[in-house]
Simulated assay, not measured.
Amino acid sequence: MKIIELRSDTFTLPTPGMRDAMFSAPLGDDVFGEDPSVLALESKLANMFHKEAALFCPSGTMSNQMAISATVSKGQEVICDELSHIYLYEGGGIMANAGASVKLLKGDLGRLTKSQIEAAISPDDIHACESAMVSLENTVNKGGGSVYSSESLDEISNFCKKKEIPLHLDGARIFNAMAVTGQIPSQFGAWFDSISICLSKGLGAPVGSVLVGNEAFIKKAKRIRKRLGGGWRQAGMLAAAGIYALDHQVVRLQEDHQRAKAISEICSTLLWVESTLPVVTNIVIVKIREGLNSTIKVAELAQKGIKCSPFGAEYIRFVTHLGFDDEDLSRFEKAIKS
Rank of each mutant, 00 (worst) to 15 (best):
3 I>G: 04
5 E>V: 11
9 D>Q: 14
9 D>P: 06
11 F>G: 01
11 F>P: 00
35 D>M: 05
53 A>R: 01
59 S>A: 13
66 M>S: 12
67 A>E: 06
74 K>G: 13
76 Q>H: 11
77 E>S: 13
81 D>T: 12
82 E>S: 12
83 L>F: 07
89 Y>R: 06
91 G>W: 03
93 G>N: 01
102 V>T: 15
107 G>V: 07
111 R>P: 07
113 T>V: 09
117 I>P: 00
122 S>R: 12
123 P>M: 09
126 I>G: 09
128 A>T: 14
130 E>C: 03
131 S>Q: 08
132 A>W: 02
136 L>G: 01
151 E>H: 11
151 E>D: 13
156 I>E: 04
158 N>D: 10
162 K>H: 05
163 K>G: 08
170 D>Q: 10
175 F>H: 01
184 I>D: 08
187 Q>K: 09
197 I>C: 04
199 L>V: 05
211 L>C: 00
212 V>P: 03
214 N>F: 04
215 E>V: 08
221 A>S: 05
225 R>Y: 13
226 K>W: 08
227 R>I: 01
234 Q>W: 03
250 V>C: 12
254 Q>S: 13
259 R>N: 05
262 A>P: 15
276 T>H: 06
280 V>L: 09
299 A>Y: 09
303 Q>H: 09
310 P>L: 14
312 G>T: 11
313 A>I: 15
319 V>N: 00
320 T>A: 02
325 D>Q: 11
333 E>N: 11
334 K>R: 15
338 S>L: 07
338 S>M: 13
